[in-house]
Nucleic acid binder design. Structure first.
Lengths: 254, 254
DNA sequence: TTTTAATACGCGGATTTATGCGGGTTTATG
DNA sequence: CATAAACCCGCATAAATCCGCGTATTAAAA
């Protein structure tokens, strides 16, 4: 083995490379080649070995620190904070051991993400997205109600889920609102989606509506149910907020 | 290749883009080009790659976050290129107008991503993940077969999906392999998952197995079916590769 | 102590990758 | 329906990589 003028063994070079990576989070083959007085080929072989041993990540042109990875994807949805707050409030409705039918939407997603890992419960859903998110919680049993997946609403629609829902009776249904209004009640704009949601309402003893205050006082073509069927209404507002005045009859505001 | 003064590797640019997308839910090619000191062409290529890997949605002028439709964070797939190549080969089995039962796995995901947008077909699946991915194709009808979502395999298991599968007869079943061996045939390691997969096999006239060559010649405890039931075997290898010699009897290698 | 094997390097040349650029085509939008 | 921006395609290029080979040094074997 030929020891160059600067006299470094392979492992010494490796150590140097690791040090550089820890320091700068990245190295260039070309630079290393100069600093260490060896050919780029050798550097490449070094990097290949280190990458192989999992000490760094080889890329074209050099290498990156192993701790360097894509930032965690935390979707910043519209009105994210409000939705997260709502989710937090809604958690208290989730009783251990209960059976819950859950809808979909970004607010609901925030809710699910905040469910504590020690909650043991059974969730039914027609939304593959919610099912996957729910499945990340170790003690939760997820029953996905099948059907034809509707592209725009991302839930399963058609006769199948409606028929299956008819055989279910759960403690609580958590539903997002597209439109909610003191007079028109809960409304929706797509016919087939509305059919499924109505089936969901029938399958639950209690109904909780989860929505940001924006959706209050808006109406859409398809009627789902009157206000009086709603047991809980959860928004990001304080329960005594005047905007909620039209919704106080028999509804528990949270 | 010229690495500019600001000297960012391609991956670093990619990371930056992802970060921007998570922050703003969208990016403009023109802005990125400026911020990163590279040509818009390069940005376009970056966005194309990221879109290809399913990390964002490419649109005219830039890209959008995928988070709303797809908030599930999936780590970069192992042997991504091989799996992509397999997916490409498998596409030819998807006849327009046909009914297809599709399994799950990262290879299958790559396959689905490469389905051309003008394919009109009906897909059945027990995997919520695959259902969501399939639903991004405009002309594809997705039937999600419900059941209890199994956390580890991320598919619906139990009596329900098995019973529903018994009522279905499709043209083709596309299944990934966990173990495949000339003697032991197709094998699997989880009992409940195996039951569902067996129901899938029964529900299809033809069976195509999609797998990277790594899985060849490996056996697991649960037997699914003998080799002779397999109609097509698709790997990243050339059909005449000697590694496939044990699998030539009556199987069409692709 | 030779002989043999193994390892570490460097080098030349073929190949691949990353990028920018020019020019024709498509898309979005007023 | 015009027009500017965005896109796609092919090409050029230079850096980075890969591959095989020769050599030198060391380790192991005979």
């Amino acid at each position: 083995m030929e020891i160059p003028a600067t006299g470094l063994f392979k492992n010494e070079r490796h150590a140097f490379i690791i040090k550089e990576i820890n320091l700068h989070n990245k190295v260039l083959s070309s630079e290393l080649s100069q600093k260490l007085n060896v050919s780029e080929d050798t550097i490449r072989r070094d990097l290949a070995e280190l990458a192989d041993a999992g000490e760094l990540i080889k890329v074209h042109g050099g290498a990156l620190s192993r701790s360097y990875h894509y930032p965690i994807q935390q979707s910043k949805t519209y009105a994210h904070d409000a939705k997260k707050a709502i989710g937090k409030k809604a958690i208290q409705l989730l009783r251990p051991g209960s059976h819950i039918l859950i809808g979909t939407g970004t607010t609901m997603l925030e809710l699910v993400r905040q469910i504590p890992d020690d909650l043991e419960a059974t969730f039914f859903t027609v939304s593959p997205l919610m099912a996957l998110e729910l499945a990340t919680h170790p003690l939760i049993k997820v029953i996905l109600i099948g059907g034809q997946l509707d592209m725009s609403s991302q839930i399963n629609i058609g006769e199948k889920p409606i028929a299956e829902l008819a055989d279910i009776k759960v403690d609580l249904c958590l539903l997002g609102a597209y439109g909610i209004d003191p007079v028109d009640g809960l409304t929706e704009n797509d016919w087939s989606v509305a059919q499924v949601k109505k089936a969901m309402l029938r399958a639950a003893r209690q109904l909780a509506i989860i929505t940001i205050s924006e959706k209050l006082d808006s109406s859409l073509p398809m009627h789902l149910c009157p206000l009086k069927n709603i047991d809980y209404l959860i928004t990001e507002l304080q329960p005594d907020d005047p905007k909620l005045d039209g919704y106080r009859n028999d509804i528990i505001l949270i």
